[in-house]
Nucleic acid binder design. Sequence first.
RNA 1: GGCCCGUUGGAGAAGCGGUUUAACUCACUAGCCUUUCACGCUAGCAUGCGCGGGUUCGAAUCCCGCACGGGUCACCA
Length: 476
Amino acid sequence: MDVRVRYAPSPTGYLHIGNARTALFNYLFARRHGGSFIVRIEDTDVARNVDTGVEDQLSLLRWLGIDWDESIDKEGGVGPYRQLDRLEWYRHYAEALIESGMAYRCYCTDEELEAIKREQEASGADRFHYPRRCLDKPEQDAPYAIRFKVPDATRYAFDDLIKDTVTFQSEDIGDWVIMKRNGIPTYNFACAIDDALMKISHVLRGEDHITNTPRQLMVLDALGFKRPIYGHMPLIVDKDGRKLSKRSGSVLQYISQFKERGFLPEALFNFIALLGWSPDAKAEVFTPGALVERFDENRLSGSPATFDAGKLHYLNHQHIQRLELDEAVALCRPFLESEGITEDKDPAWVRELVSLLQERLDYGAEIVDLYHAFFKGPFTLETEAREFLAATDGAATLLGDLKGRLQALDTFDADAIKQAIKQAGKATGMKGKQLFMPVRIAISGRMKGPDLPRMISLLGRETVLQRVSKTLDTLE
RNA sequence: GGCCCGUUGGAGAAGCGGUUUAACUCACUAGCCUUUCACGCUAGCAUGCGCGGGUUCGAAUCCCGCACGGGUCACCA
């Protein structure tokens, strides 16, 4: 069987982590099995469509490293790939269903429907089913929707790739609308028709679609189409176990937000692949290519996947460590520039800064925080640092000696600075922690930080001398 | 409320009836490394698999009931 899978976004918003996950798994599945990955645009909700929705989502997909074989920009013989361009198909099949008695025109107005629903609610019914009021109505010259006539006492069961056998009873589903009054199909109808016409072999989607499946099966069966194999992936939930939504606290959930904060596409790809799936391995850090090789649909999980920001940071950190210095600089520079940090600095300085901080970076934007923490913030001695200095005999002498040496240096680079520190140590009899810690404190005010000589060089002679003087003042 | 799905440590998660004394990863803790921090390495971290029954020589793994959590019930997708 030819593997053909699809990702079917609706251009009603931005690329959400949940949609990205659906796209990613379909992509992995297709690539793993040498099949085709299709992106179909489901734009049948005319009122909610956003102008830039399609292009925004597609470009973010590309950014993530997900490409496709067929879509609106790549004809594959079963197009068009935008549902509004396929209306004739839906109308054709809807008419066919009416003719065969499996669907009927419904002339009820919104007000009438609303009244029916209220009535049913008042009567305490569990199910709100359309009462087939228009089933035998003669054709009239009035706007109408088309409803699918749900078969009586029919069992709709399917072997889900992830959930095993899932069963629904037709009694639980009322006659639903397949074509809206505006002549546009509803989601479940268009989706079923397109999956069939586009020869989709497997449908991998979120579990929130599981109750849509019986409706789609009805359409497929009624029209004599072959059913694809379905696989419903667990929902992505927040820390509280709820489906990720706008209300899920401070969790970032749109792909663009991760991109803007300096997360790497390959790290996000890695992270998303772990949402509801686990590799048969003792590691979790993988490149997209390695994930394609390792992907195995049998290892898809059936229980909810918790969005764990800590894990995302860890994975992104790991991927950043694997970056070449030039790549890390490219990742960080925009954030430094937008903060004005690079204004009076040359490229070599920026390169050295990134080189020094790369190993502690979780995401690109963090370079700014680290810069401020170690280089910029107002110079004050932390309590612990002040106490350490006060308790170190000869600290003042050492700093005074070092200050002179730093002033005299021809070139203010890390090597020369390191030599100066060592010489100062020799001259004053200080070494090891007794030597480096007072220097670190005098220069940064803190007990911890990046490699000292390199940091001093980056800080620049003027700032360093000022800080040493200020520290010396507090020692008197 | 009806229907559907799920429930393994602080978190993700492996496990598919018997070499499981419950992998692996994150977080956390301790130690090592290092001038400090970070990185890296090592070790520790569920007497227990929502609860109660049952099937079986044997169950986290199969069955039933209950509880809890979630999803879904649109002329939205």
